[in-house]
Design a binder for these strands. Structure first.
Lengths: 325, 325
DNA sequence: CTGAAAGCGCTTACAG
DNA sequence: CTGAAAGCGCTTACAG
């Protein structure tokens, strides 16, 4: 930077201003400075800038699992908003089993981000509360009392899916639930509410996040007596595993069993799968999370009380009226 | 840090040593220091540490597209090696159309990483050479003369796939190629070699990276006269789009047309898809890329001339002998 | 706009 | 091991 200032015949401070696109420098000299910087092969040192700049800085994003397409959608929404706001993103990646949640979130803190957004965080409500003093964290697709979050209305979405099945004439609808624990409970609640209101008994089968295990579990369920005529899965990955279980048993979908997923991930639309699912509006969730995070770093008095994100049902191949008895 | 030193009754320097897990401090005092740090809610400032530490630092990873499951596999391999080496990862994300390649790679440079690994980089060979002086960059799944890269043997893999189809009795095999340009040409070459050696005419249909467009393109191909009896796609996503095109036309797979993908992504194994494909050993590519990057930051004289990564054919539902004429 | 100075929170020799 | 000091490469007032 020293060199650039000398070469461009301006002050060190002016170069700094030009690099940051701040005002206080005329457009022509700015261009000149950037030109000299380019010629000298100068590359702005973000590390030093962040340290000196008192870390107004970046927004951290923790992605629990790179294999989950849904998070990619959320990330797209986050980036859209953060790009527009001119904010940098610091990204850390976790593991599908949640074992890296703490390390990933800590990594963001050590990078001195102004606020973090967590996709797929599996820490318990209590652990999350313990971490609250460490800095603002916006959770997505999950609500924890007293903490920030951006989520689409899972209760409404699951209700939508359940009512779709009931309207088709299904009575024995099983909900294939994610492992219990804090968070990610809305879908189950929506299903139970819709069933109860229809005067039917909810039937919840708890399963795993591991698809191979979901497939085994679904196979047991579907091979048992009083087989459900429809299965609503807690997410698309699980629903696809149910499709696999049906194939294993030689059962047809939707003729023998209807299947509904949840999320609207890319894979759900694939030819050969064409899953009826609930679009959870992941990109919008991301946008909202980013706006909340921005409000935190900008110390806005009141967080933007965000508009509710309403999921929508996407009807595809895997649901139909139940046949026979 | 000041506070911790005072509270723990040791020197500032000792705290620094303890934080970095370096030696020069006894295990007991180290524990004591870390305990005090925890109690004071201290969080190591990686930004300052990096700046002071002359940036031996982290390894950068650029991921072109978060929606591509294949990159997640590569990333897993990278992290496995880098974790073991105790290196931090700085991650930036591009866009599927390649429009963010420069920004993403620059972002790593500005974070002062010691070396970068690029997944799915679409810059031209010339642009890549221009960037070479900026710092070591290891490309994956792509070879550019004179630059570092980790790649599985695409020529061999495509040959494997083509020979599988030929062995089944197919004569009219079309290769659905990615858009031309620098890089990612090995698969096409392997296909052409296998066809020519068998005394058959290669037939290459160039398409796009956009799946909707691939589907249209495949529809045209399959609806035309002299329909191929088998299609080898440049990757799994394209192959799944071909499956969609077949469904659009009311053609069956593999009865009417066999389809082979490439990559061995998770989606290829999904029930209802069950694509015959070539496993490109993505995690191993990632491991190798990480090892090469490590050799760069450690200034090892000679880069580890890595063992060739041999892809393997995974035979599933979508290939069979051609029926009828 | 300039130019000299202080500071961001660490790490790294260095003499003791 | 300690303790004082210099330095990493920037940003940010501040007087001119």
């Amino acid at each position: 930077m020293e060199d650039i200032a000398r070469e461009a015949g301006v002050s060190r401070a002016l170069v700094s201003i030009a690099m940051r696109d701040a005002h206080g420098v005329s457009a022509t000299t700015r261009e000149h400075i950037l030109e000299v910087a380019r010629r000298l092969g100068y590359r702005h040192n973000r590390v030093a800038a962040d340290l000196a700049g008192r870390g107004a800085g970046a927004i951290g994003v923790f992605v629990a699992d790179l294999h989950n397409d849904l998070y990619a959608d959320v990330f797209d929404g986050i980036r859209e908003v953060l790009d527009a706001a001119g904010r940098r993103i610091v990204l850390t990646v976790g593991a599908a089993d949640g074992s890296r949640d703490t390390a990933g979130l800590d990594g963001l803190l050590e990078a001195r981000v102004g606020a973090s957004i967590g996709l797929g965080v599996r820490l318990s409500d209590a652990e999350l509360h313990d971490r609250a003093p460490l800095g603002p964290l916006v959770l997505t697709t999950r609500e924890v009392p007293g903490l920030l979050s951006a989520a689409s209305d899972d209760v409404a979405g699951a209700r939508l899916a359940t009512e779709h099945l009931l309207a088709l004439g299904h009575c024995r609808v099983t909900f294939l639930a994610n492992p219990p624990g804090d968070g990610y409970l809305g879908r189950r609640r929506g299903y139970e509410a819709a069933m109860t209101e229809a005067g039917l008994d909810p039937h919840v089968q708890v399963t795993s996040y591991d698809t191979a295990e979901v497939r085994r579990c679904a196979r047991d369920l579907l091979a048992g007596e009083r087989r459900p005529t429809a299965v609503l899965a807690h997410n698309d990955r699980a629903a696809v595993a149910v499709l696999g279980a049906l194939a294993d048993l030689g059962l047809r979908c939707p003729e023998d069993v209807s299947v509904v997923g949840y999320d609207g991930a890319e894979a759900a639309a694939l030819p050969g799968i064409e899953l009826t699912t609930v679009d959870s509006r992941a990109a919008e969730v991301g946008r909202q999370a980013a706006r909340i995070a921005l409000a935190q770093v900008d110390h806005e008095a009141e967080a933007p009380e965000p508009a509710p994100i309403t999921p929508r049902l996407i009807t595809r191949r895997t649901t139909a009226a139940p046949t026979g008895a």
